[in-house]
Amino acid sequence: MDRAEFIEALHLIEKEKGIDKEIIFEAIEASLVSACKKNFGSNQNIKVVIDRETGNVACYAQREVVEEVMDEQNEIDLMAARILNPSYQIGDTVDLEVTPRDFGRVAAQTAKQVVVQKFREAEREILYNQYITKEREVVTAIVQRKERRNIIVQMGKIDAVLAANEQIPGEQYNFMDRIKVYVLEVKQTPKGPQIYVSRTHPELVKRLFEQEVPEVHDGTVEIKSIAREAGSRTKIAVYSKDENVDALGACVGQNGYRVNVIVNELGGEKIDVINWSEDPKEFIAAALSPSKVLAVAINEAEQSAKIVVPDHQLSLAIGKEGQNARLSAKLTGWRIDIKSETQARETNFLAEDPVEETEDAAEEMTEIMEESAEAVETAAEETAVEETQEEA
C-alpha cells in the first residue's frame, strides 16, 4: 500500500468505523518514536511527524538552544542553531531531521499494527457503549454452554456470565434455551466488554412486571418494594397513583393471566401481590397474606410489630420454615413477631410492648383485642355458613 492509498484508507476507516483518523496518526507517530530511539539512543528527544496530506514520514531529533552545550544529544548552541535559522533564541527547540534510510518500511509495518490495534479498540468501545445501556435492564439471552458452575449465555453479539450464585436453585439450563436475565454489570476489559447477569435479583421481577403490566410501565402503578427468595416465593407491594386504577388487579390481570406469565418465566416461583399502604399496620397485615391478621401493634422506635392471627392460621402466617414471616419482614422493613390469638391472650402479648404502656396505649390494646375477638367470631360464623352451604 503506497502513501496515497494509506491516507485514503484512513479516511474510509474514519467514515465507516467512526475512528478519528487523527487518533490513528498520533498513535502511529508515538509508536515510530520508539523505533527511532532504537537507532539514535533512548536518551534523545525524538519527534516523528506524518504529513496528513501526503503520508510522508519524517523523524526529527529535538535540540534545545543553549549558550553552552552540556548534553550533545539534546542541546545545540545558539550559533549552530542560527546557521539553520537566524530567528532562533535561547530556549527554543530545533528539529533536526534524522530520518533513517529504511524508515518507510518500518513506518508501514508500524502503521499496519496500529490500525489493527485501533480497530480492535474501536470494536470493543462500540460493543461496550451498546451494552452499557442495558445495565439494570432485563434482556432475553440464549443458553450456550456450562463452564464449571457458571452458565454462559448469548446476548446478541456477546456472551454473558450467569454465575452459580445468580442462578435460580434447581433450575435447569439447556443449550439454546431462551431465558430472561437481569443485567447486573457491564465491565470494560482489555479483551472487550464483560457482562454479568442474574436470574435471582429482585429487580428481575420488577422489570418483568414493567414489561407485562402497562400500568406499571407507564407509572400509574408503582412497585413500592419487593422481597424475594428466588425459585420459591416473591412478595411484591404495589400502589396506584390513580384512585380509579386497582393496583393489585392490574398486576394480577384477568384470571391471573399477567402474573402467571411472570410465574412461568421464573419456573413456577410463587408471587404474592399485595397493596402497599402508608399505614404500617395495614401494610404489615397485607404483607402476611394469605393469612388473616386479627391485630397489629407496632413499636416505631424499634421498627418492630406484634401480630395476632387466628389459631388455625398461625402456621400459614409463619410459613414453611418461616418463609412467609421472613419475606413479610423484608418487604415491610419491620421486624415481625407472630402469635396465635390463644397465645396472645394467655401471655398478654400485645400489652407487653414497652412503648404501649401508657394509659392511652393500654386502652387502644384493649380495643384491639375486643375487635380481634369480634373478628374471630365473625370468621367462625362465616366458616359455619360455608360448611352448611357445602353440606347442602
Rank of each mutant, 00 (worst) to 15 (best):
E53R: 15
S34E: 09
N39D: 04
D95E: 09
E222W: 00
V259D: 03
A325L: 06
Y131P: 12
D2G: 13
K37C: 13
K37F: 05
K320S: 09
I168N: 08
V48W: 08
D95Q: 12
D77M: 08
E370D: 05
Y239I: 03
Q194R: 07
T99P: 10
K15R: 15
L84S: 06
F103D: 04
G55N: 11
P354T: 11
I179R: 03
S304V: 09
V181T: 01
A27L: 11
S232K: 06
E185W: 02
E16Y: 12
A301M: 09
N244W: 03
I236M: 09
R105A: 03
M176T: 12
A108L: 07
E137R: 12
M176Y: 10
R199C: 00
K292R: 14
A375M: 14
A122H: 08
V355Q: 09
K134W: 11
H312C: 12
V273Q: 06
M155E: 02
C36P: 00
Q389E: 14
P214N: 02
S304M: 04
G322D: 05
Q109P: 03
N43E: 11
V48I: 11
F209L: 10
V183L: 10
V106T: 14
Y88M: 11
D2T: 10
F40H: 08
F119K: 11
N299I: 12
Y173C: 01
R207N: 00
E357M: 15
D20V: 15
A329Y: 02
V205T: 14
E363R: 07
G91M: 00
S340F: 06
K157R: 10
E68K: 14
A380V: 06
I28G: 03
H312V: 09
D353P: 05
V98A: 11
E391N: 06
L184F: 06
Q389D: 10
K15H: 13
K224Y: 03
I126T: 15
I195H: 02
Q62H: 00
E97H: 00
E386F: 10
L12E: 14
I226K: 01
A317K: 07
V115K: 03
I226W: 05
T234S: 13
I90T: 10
T358R: 00
E16L: 05
N39H: 13
R228E: 01
W276H: 15
S304T: 13
D159I: 00
D360K: 10
R148K: 12
A344G: 06
I262N: 08
A344T: 05
L84R: 11
M369D: 05
S315P: 09
P100H: 03
Q89W: 13
E357K: 15
I50Y: 02
A247R: 00
V261E: 07
A9R: 03
D279E: 15
R101M: 08
N56P: 06
